[in-house]
Nucleic acid binder design. Structure first.
Length: 141
DNA sequence: GCCAACGTTGGC
DNA sequence: GCCAACGTTGGC
């Protein structure tokens, strides 16, 4: 299967991008939503994901790569359906791409991030991915 | 199986 | 602090 793209939210006062960079790798635990879980179960090693800071910042700050497919969330109860994936940082974005920027861009109006604002793990279409990366290169905001 | 009540997420 | 969106729970 060809590479897929994702967006994963974390509140920066709980687990910020810099922490993932410092750790070198991490598991995406604590997801308790079935749609988000299904997205994580669809991830393949080598898929790439935007790291999004929710609540504080409200911006995409970096790119990470999936290094291990879904396995049971060690922070969940035994026998629960919840899973994690393992990720590692690839690189920070040249400039963060804010939610306001994404909302203002017609090409990005159909993103999971916009259409289902509470979803913590969403799909990003290839065209959306390249567009956001282009925005992060250009934006001298 | 329906739906009201309630809880959580996350933007504003 | 408020509220919209959405998920879950529990009574019937």
């Amino acid at each position: 299967m060809s590479k897929q793209y994702w967006l994963m939210k974390s509140e920066p006062d709980v687990y910020p991008w810099d922490q993932l960079v410092e750790d070198g790798t991490g598991i995406w635990d604590g997801v308790r939503n079935h749609t988000a879980k299904l997205n994580m179960m669809a991830m393949q090693v080598g898929d790439e994901a935007l790291f999004y800071h929710s609540n504080i910042g409200k911006e995409c700050v970096g790119i990470m790569r999936v290094t291990e497919t879904a396995f049971p969330d060690p922070t969940a109860d035994e026998g629960s359906p919840w899973v994690v994936v393992r990720v590692e940082p690839v690189r920070p974005l040249d400039h963060p791409v804010t939610l306001a920027t994404i909302k203002a861009d017609l090409k990005l109006a159909d993103m999971d991030l916009i259409r289902q604002s509470r979803l913590s793990v969403g799909r990003v279409r290839p065209a959306e991915w390249t567009h956001i990366l282009r925005l992060s290169e250009n934006a001298a905001r």
